[in-house]
């Protein structure tokens, strides 16, 4: 057991956890931030994507201890002052989800993607979403939503 201290969505948090605790479980079980989903056991699906020091990572493939001292942003931390992040607004507008299980991860990846590519091409979007799986939508509306998110971000 060790005490792990990290900043999540702008707030400092400390909690005791076993050394083997994954960041995804730490966020969900210790901090009760259950918006971060766990969809696979094999680092493939990206449902668990969060930002660590500004980069999209799979929180199921990182130990909470590795995030000690880092700044983590989860889906709960994207909206600011009651206003949805452009990626969240675009996913709603473009109906880029069905069951919604993959959506938190898709949105976190999208948020990082449009920061890196403010006007992404279809190829950049498809390549950029390679680490996120969706079993419902067939991806078409997700790709549309990423484009729309970039537009909304620009308009902001």
């Amino acid at each position: 057991m060790a005490k792990i201290t990290l900043k999540v969505n702008g707030e400092q948090h400390s909690a005791e956890a076993e050394d083997r605790t994954l960041l995804a479980n730490f966020l969900r079980d210790e901090l009760k931030l259950t918006g971060t989903h766990i969809g696979c056991d094999t680092s493939q699906c990206g449902a668990c994507t969060v930002h660590v020091d500004g980069r999209a990572v799979k929180s199921c493939t990182m130990l909470a201890a590795q995030a000690e001292g880092c700044e983590v942003v989860t889906i709960e931390g994207l909206a600011k002052n009651g206003k949805l992040h452009p990626a969240q607004a675009a996913f709603t507008e473009c109906h880029a989800l069905q069951c919604g299980f993959c959506t938190p991860g898709m949105i976190m990846t999208t948020a990082a993607l449009i920061k890196e590519h403010p006007a992404p091409t279809d190829e950049q979007i498809v390549h950029g979403l390679e680490g996120n799986l969706c079993r419902c939508t067939g991806y078409l509306n997700i790709v549309k939503a990423v484009k729309r998110a970039a537009e909304l971000q620009k308009a902001k």
């Binding site: 680092s43 980069r55 999209a56 990572v57 799979k58 990182m62 990846t109």
Partner: peptide, 9 residues
């Protein structure tokens, strides 16, 4: 290599 999240770690 892999996907963006894998390349970030």
């Amino acid at each position: 290599i892999g996907d963006p999240q894998v390349r970030n770690r």
